[in-house]
Design a protein around this nucleic acid. Structure first.
Length: 473
RNA sequence: GGCGCUGUACCCAAGUGGCUUAAGGGGAAGGUCUGCAAAACCUUUAUUCGUCGGUUCGAAUCCGACCGGCGCCUCCA
């Protein structure tokens, strides 16, 4: 039985999708006015792990991530850079896809763009207006929060408290300070579209209601995003969708904790962030993903080089085993010994912990338990049959690679097999072996040092010398 | 002010009533192997879970108070 923590009910619930084996999942994506930062990356990666685990469980997941390509920040940026909003959005959309690819996040089923769904948004707003949930003031259309009785249920707020909060914007046109914009009247020089209320552009929240419905249906299984979207964004989405379509919008709400810098939320407005691409230039994606996966998705997580380095060491530990597995397979020893090894147990442990609200830290622990056990067997046996290595590889592929994305075995295979300089390395190793036999250790060490400088680490063992490459990306 | 999260070893972190006198990663120390390394393997590194009380046969886990850190209530993953 799979359990999932639902922000709406604040409890872990059994996961039962509306239409099994299909699962509909919507994740709030980027507003494309800048490169996304490593804190955003945490949410994207953890959503990716959730999606991949659902697929591991045999669900057919339709995963949608929106791209907000019209909003205040994009307009601001386009003015600053003296470019069109289309150019700004286009540029950062491409950058987004590039970073997602580098983070080895699986491509979504659809990436709907706000500007391509204006018609759908207008339809939802018209319906809301017809039903009395929206009002038009001089071309600005607002949602009337007082008409929606469940307002505040997701975020645990009540309208009285919110109204008494001093920080809500005072806007003369709104009936109530909590009301939010569905449609914004066009200002000079801003991108705009024709609508029943005149030229304008959509408010922020309406795109998710419209696009989620269009691509996934009126009721969806999972809606995910960062903690900071609970209020007001997701609250407003519920108000819009449920008022418009008169059915439950989302069955399970999933929210991700923040990535902190020295215990402070990393955010664009505070300026205390690193872009995902900066971090990807320093660490392999697998190490970054391992760093994220080692903590529960819902809580806070501090970011620092020290912590990333420690994750990278962990990743290298996985690589070391993977490397041995590749070599074992390459040797292809038939009719060698087949050691006792209960791979099934690791599968069931992995599944058990991931079933419990995607407990990736424990899943990682299972992987490392597996690694220790496998290493022990490899160290203790000569002439192991290649069938054993194939079993190990399959497990790592199914769990560490396909679900967590903390290793990519094919990259390793390719590096091992297709690199043209491998022959030269082998030649140097032979030279060094001869030097060692002649007790010419000075020469042997010199050869090793040269290779080390090239990122090639030699490993002597009873069966001969092997090498591995570091900084494999 | 309202709502919510959080405090576990040197660092990160899981565990939320008995299976745990606390997983996993990093770090550190000793050992096996080795010409020396590296990797791997073995051993050690929290009788203790912010503090003080309480409930219970039994608590890191439940309750209360207190202390500390953070977030949301305004754009933000």
């Amino acid at each position: 039985m799979m359990k999932i923590y639902n922000t709406f009910t604040k409890t872990k619930e059994e996961f039962r999708p509306i239409n099994p084996p299909n699962v509909t999942m919507y994740m709030c994506g980027p507003t494309v006015y800048n490169y996304f930062h490593i804190g955003n990356a945490r949410s994207f990666v953890m959503a990716d792990i959730v999606r991949r685990y659902l697929e591991f469980k045999g669900f057919n997941v339709k995963f949608t991530m929106n791209i907000t390509d019209v909003d205040d920040n994009i307009i601001k940026k386009s003015n600053e850079e003296k470019k069109s909003t289309t150019d700004v959005a286009g540029f950062y959309t491409e950058a987004f896809f590039e970073d997602v690819r580098r983070l080895k996040i699986k491509t979504a089923s659809v990436y709907p763009k706000a500007t391509l769904h204006i018609t759908e948004m207008i339809e939802v707003i018209r319906e809301l207006e017809k039903k009395g949930f929206a009002y038009n003031v001089n071309g600005n259309v607002f949602y009337d929060v007082s008409k929606f009785s469940n307002y505040g249920k997701l975020s645990g707020k009540n309208t009285e408290d919110l109204e008494s909060g001093a920080r809500v914007d005072v806007n003369e046109e709104k009936k109530n300070p909590l009301d939010f914009a569905l449609w914004k009247k066009a200002k000079e020089g801003e991108p705009s579209w024709d609508s029943p209320w005149g030229k304008g552009r959509p408010g922020w929240h309406i795109e998710c209601s419209a696009m989620s419905t269009k691509h996934l249906g009126k009721s969806i299984d999972i809606h995910a995003g960062g903690n900071d979207l609970i209020f007001p964004h997701h609250e407003n989405e519920i108000a819009q969708s449920e008022a418009c379509f008169e059915q439950k919008f989302v069955k399970y709400w999933l929210h991700f904790g923040f990535l902190n810098m020295q215990n402070e939320k990393m955010s664009k407005s505070l300026g205390n962030f690193f872009t995902a691409r900066e971090v990807l230039d320093k660490y392999p994606a697998e190490a970054i993903r391992l760093f994220f996966a080692q903590t529960n998705y819902g809580g806070p997580l501090n970011f620092s080089d020290e912590l990333l380095n420690s994750a990278q060491k962990g990743y290298e530990k996985i690589l070391n085993l993977a490397d041995k597995i590749e070599r074992g397979i390459k040797l292809d020893a038939k009719s060698g010994v087949i050691p006792e090894f209960d791979v099934k147990k690791y599968y069931s442990d992995f599944e058990k912990v991931m079933d419990d609200d995607f407990n990736s830290p424990q899943a990682v622990a299972v992987i490392f338990d597996f690694i220790r056990a496998a290493n022990k067997i490899i160290a203790g046996n000569n002439n192991i049959d290649s069938i054993f290595y194939h079993g190990l590889k399959k497990f790592l592929k199914d769990t560490a690679e396909n679900v967590l994305g903390i290793i990519h075995l094919d990259d390793l295979t390719n590096a091992l097999n297709s690199d043209t300089d491998n022959n030269q390395i082998e030649l140097l190793i032979k030279k060094r072996d001869i030097a060692k036999k002649e007790k010419n250790f000075a020469l042997a060490d010199q050869i090793r040092a040269e290779l080390t400088n090239l990122g090639i680490i030699l490993q002597d063992s009873k069966t001969g010398t092997t090498f591995k490459k570091i900084n494999l990306k």
